[in-house]
Amino acid sequence: MQVIGLCRFSYPAIGGFQVEHDSIEERIAFLYAEARLEERFQLMEAIALPCLRAQTDQDFELIIVIGDSLPAHHVSRLRDLCADIPQITIHAEPPRRQRQVMKEILNAARRDPQAPCLQFRHDDDDAISVDFIERLRQTLQDCPGLVAKNKTLAVDFNRGYVAELGAAGIAATEIHRPYYVASLGMYVQGNCPLTIMNFAHEKILRFMPTVTISDAPMFVRSHNGYNDSRQKKVKPVPVTPIDDALAADFEARFALRQDDVRRIFAAKS
């Protein structure tokens, strides 16, 4: 079954952000600010890409959506970071309504629209467990009755970590968070045009059956200077530096390595 992931990298959508701007020009200026993009590239390199390289099931595709106005040197840097991950395609779009354009991209990526597929979203500052694709497939195989009776079905792995990354390394705390973007997958029946972008992730349970699995940490959610969801007043999540045992777990489960994090963030600090 085809597995399609979608990642937005500073795409200047019309709508789709909790931080509002008065014009698309202001949004582009905010998204493409050098300090912001530097942090996004650091996070992409340190946390979002290693877990994709290390997937135990390599049969998936990931579309990274960028704006067609992203400066050429940033496009080149992104292509270089992704060059050794053949599953990744970089797709440029002009500013458009976020949900509509993302739905179109996902449906266009289906090799056979008459066949079912699995879909997931991947934020450019988060990690998924290295066995996420494998476990997503397996969960659907474990639920033949639900799959047979429904056009769509969500799979939610709701254990993970909040983490902060920097030149000093990783600080983190474990959390349970249902229906978060990372480690949330969706089955779509053949001949069904719905996509994972039709639904707000925290509301997806209102529209289809969901299967929740809580047996192991399956995501790392980074908190950083430019989280869209954290630009307004939100309750802080305390984190503490990880010890050697947890650092080993992070490397094994998420391909997230202390030495790499320190090197990547120290380079521009």
Rank of each mutant, 00 (worst) to 15 (best):
R206A: 15
R221P: 00
R230N: 13
N191Q: 11
G190E: 03
S222K: 08
D228E: 13
V188L: 09
R230I: 04
T210H: 13
T210Y: 15
S229G: 06
N191K: 13
T210E: 05
P217L: 06
N191C: 14
Y226M: 09
M208G: 02
C192T: 15
P236K: 11
M197W: 08
M197V: 00
N191D: 12
N191T: 06
A200R: 13
P238R: 02
K203T: 09
P236Q: 12
N224F: 13
P193S: 08
G190D: 02
V188F: 01
Y226C: 08
V234E: 06
P209Q: 03
V234Y: 04
P209G: 01
N198Y: 01
T212G: 07
Q189D: 13
S222A: 11
V220G: 01
N191F: 12
T195C: 07
Y226S: 13
F219L: 07
T195V: 04
P209D: 03
V220A: 04
M218K: 08
L194Y: 01
S229D: 12
E202N: 07
P238K: 03
G190S: 04
N227P: 05
T212L: 08
S214R: 09
K203G: 01
P217D: 05
V188T: 07
K232W: 07
T212M: 15
I196N: 00
F199K: 04
K232Y: 12
F219Q: 07
P217N: 07
G190Y: 09
S214E: 15
C192D: 15
H223Y: 14
F219H: 15
N191H: 15
N224T: 05
K233R: 10
G225W: 08
C192Y: 00
H201A: 01
V220W: 02
M208R: 04
T212H: 10
I213E: 03
N198C: 08
D228T: 13
R230Y: 09
Q231V: 04
R221E: 08
V211W: 02
N224E: 05
I196Y: 01
F219P: 05
V220C: 05
P217A: 10
R206K: 13
R206T: 06
V220M: 06
L205N: 14
P217F: 05
T195R: 02
S222R: 06
V237A: 14
V237Y: 08
K233C: 14
I204Q: 05
S214L: 02
